[in-house]
Design a protein around this nucleic acid. Structure first.
Lengths: 218, 218
DNA sequence: CAGTCTTGTGAAGTTTACTTCACAGAAATC
DNA sequence: GATTTCTGTGAAGTAAACTTCACAAGACTG
């Protein structure tokens, strides 16, 4: 099983090692860095999913590092550690790209909660931009293809010309084009007798569309 | 309130009038016709949602009439009345475009159940091919737009360049194009301070996308 | 107040999606 | 066995979606 990767950047050795230890105890794969400069080098070899970075550090501070990280690795999640928990500080951090912040001193559990919450949110966002969604949604966004699904949902099995006539389309090759598309997207299938029917996945999508149509119209 | 319109075609006057009466008692708007030829005339003035037609009639029979109706009015639903309830007869009727059939003699309730079921199924199919679905679904089928929704779902409020940087897109005008699209589709809105946020509708769609992503992946 | 950052607009170009047309083998029908 | 119907394929054309580019007004920053 693959564990989530986290990078911890803090010049304070004691704090850094204690954070690393806590995270490793919770089965994360952790990389520690003692400065922003080191972090910029290490990230080239392994891009973490989550970064925990101290605001105040000698050399490049968190405020400078965050935009650099966000620019090259927009998918990354960043939690900033701030010494003084002023509202200004937090707002400023969020503005430049931090996704969350922790005020020093923080407890073990506060750290873990923040880490887990951010990893959850990250997964949430990633789901929405999954590539499989592109194909499925754009397949469903065509009225003719939805009509085919609706027809097959009722009649279970239909032959090519049955579908064409059912839709009232004069050009059968047009229907064929959309049937192909539906087949590629695994929403319908064709048996040995050339009869079309919904796949299991297709049936699910019909359900989904009805749920959706109720939300859209009223 | 608008009632559903039904056309009843039967040469047998007693049967026809009794069907019409039953349907009118149940608040349908009914047109009776004594022949297929009359029906072809009357349909030009008002297109019904459902047609009940007798198979055996002098002149043009149901088997001939159905393809004509289906061709010119594909959205229509047709129930055929068959004198002899042979399986062949039913299969034949379905093949040429009838959506359901009733075997003579039938009871009042059998008629009503068939009528209501077919009207329900019709509504079901119409929902799937609603025009509003086209815009919404094709809007959601774009990965960048989904990422914008995901980002706004988390951060609640974001400004233009925040969004652009969050996505890691170099050309801001591209993001602007998609923001416009989202605005037109009423998924996001912009307040007086030019800050973007999800609309209520947009928030719903984010929920639905997660539902969908769970259906697609496993 | 010069310069950069933000938030756009509109046109031109590119890519993708869809439609139409011409044709053709297999199956059913007459 | 000739003819119509069914089920396609592939190319060409059209429309829609998306991207890129050139430019600019207003806000903010040093």
């Amino acid at each position: 099983m693959k564990t989530e990767t986290i990078m911890v950047i803090d010049d304070d050795r004691d704090l850094r090692e204690s954070i690393v230890e806590i995270l490793e105890d919770n089965d994360f794969t952790v990389t520690g860095c003692d400065s922003a400069e080191t972090a910029l080098q290490k990230i080239k070899f392994q891009v973490p999913r989550l970064v925990i970075v101290d605001n105040m550090m000698p050399g490049m501070g968190g405020m400078v590092l965050i935009p650099l990280f966000k620019k090259d690795y927009p998918g990354i999640r960043i939690i900033m550690i701030t010494a003084f928990s002023t509202v200004d500080n937090a707002v400023e951090a969020m503005k430049i790209g931090a996704d969350d912040y922790l005020a020093k001193p923080f407890k073990r559990d506060e750290l873990l909660v923040a880490v887990k919450r951010n990893l959850e949110e990250l997964k949430f966002e990633e789901q929405l931009s999954e590539s499989g969604m592109d194909e499925t949604l754009s397949c469903l966004s065509n009225r003719i293809r939805r009509q085919v699904l609706a027809a097959l949902s009722k009649k279970r099995k239909m032959r090519f010309m049955d579908i064409t006539r059912h839709l009232g389309v004069s050009d059968h090759t047009k229907v064929n084009f959309h049937l192909k598309n539906l087949k590629v997207n695994n929403l319908i299938s064709q048996d040995g007798e050339k009869v079309y029917s919904l796949t299991q996945h297709g049936a699910k999508m019909v359900d989904y569309l009805h749920l959706l149509s109720k939300k859209i119209s009223p």
